[in-house]
Amino acid sequence: MTTLNKKLSRLLPLSLALLFLISGCGTNSAKSGAGASAGAGGETAVPAASQAASASSAYADYPNRPIEYVVPFSAGGGVDLVARTVVEGLSKEWGQPIEIVNKPGAGGATGAQYALKQAANDGYTVLADNVASTTMLQAGSAAAPLLLSDHEFAARVVTDAPVFVVAADAPWKDFREFSDWAKANPEKLTWTSVGPAGFSTFAVAEWLKAIGADFSKTRMVATKGASESLPLVAGGNAVLAVHTVNETSTLVKAGKLKVLAILAPERSPYYPDVPTTAEQGVEGLSVSWWTGMSFPKGTPQEIVKKWEDGVSKLSQDPDFIEKLKKLQLDPNVLTGQEFTDFVNKEAEYYTGLATQTGIRK
């Protein structure tokens, strides 16, 4: 055997031993880390902290393109005006355009279905939510096209009190006299609403139930919202409209409408001379108006949270507050679980009212 071969023969056992030691250490190391790095079926699992970091980073640049903000009522109504005020503030804050898209119809259901059922749940389609397109919609029908479970609730922005308005030349001097007339002549009472389960419908039904009038004998005049409804009443084409302080103020100031009562615990600072319904002998009324925003189910929570935080920040902005005051509104923000709990409780009450008065079919 040559000298080289002799040297190789001596080195070979040492090399094999070293290789065995290295592979053994690697196997033990893999076994000791299996619980943390392998999941069911041998798949590599990512630690929870890494998953959270990845999710957060995925939405860190949201929004990075225009957002569609769907208003399920006609332009010029309360939901629309608040939505435009909100998007003006948030688009400036986030540096991305937020485009208002009005999709009225079916008491708010048309636009709500588009935003929650047809659009992607990627945060780039938002519903300008409202009491009529959420709790009242679900309460008003046993086969409602949308349920609360279809919403990912983000934030309530404002609340407003309903007011009962009639034409400026209507014969009733106050709400008490008008209530007596409605109880005696329900078949002559016509009132406007966006649909059988609209906001005005619930307000009228609750009022008639409280005074002992027959709701079923009255007649609804269907409209697409306050901007269509109020001129009908002012022109004598319907007897009554129930809309918010914000929505009624223009025609009231113009002398076209007369406010008979405000449905609120206290008088409105915007209608200080108008007595509440309770002051005029009709107690126990609680229907109220609100608007906010929600997303389709499955929308990433990081995106929903960004809207929650954005609205909360806006509500502290003097410029935003001043713009709402010009609409005769004040911020009344609820976010997260508080908002969800609020709508669940409200839906329970409205379902009972709808059942008792015959709204729910």
Rank of each mutant, 00 (worst) to 15 (best):
T3F: 15
A30N: 11
K31I: 12
S32L: 10
G33L: 15
G33M: 13
A36L: 13
A40C: 11
G41S: 01
G42I: 09
E43K: 12
A52F: 12
S57W: 07
P63G: 07
P66Q: 10
F73G: 07
G78K: 00
V82H: 05
K92D: 09
V101P: 00
T110K: 09
A112C: 06
Q113R: 07
A115N: 08
K117W: 04
K117Q: 15
L127N: 07
V131H: 08
S133H: 02
S149T: 09
H151W: 08
F153N: 03
F153Q: 02
R156W: 09
V158N: 06
P162S: 06
P162I: 01
D169I: 10
P171N: 15
K173H: 11
E177G: 13
N185W: 05
S193G: 05
A197F: 02
S200P: 00
T201H: 02
D214R: 00
K217P: 11
T218W: 09
M220P: 08
L230T: 01
P231G: 05
L232M: 09
L240D: 08
L240T: 11
H243S: 14
H243P: 09
T244C: 13
N246P: 03
A254P: 09
G255W: 04
V274M: 11
T277K: 05
S288E: 14
W289P: 03
T291C: 07
F295Y: 12
F295M: 06
E308R: 03
V311S: 02
D317K: 02
K325F: 02
E338V: 10
T340H: 14
K345F: 09
K345T: 11
I359P: 00
I359R: 01
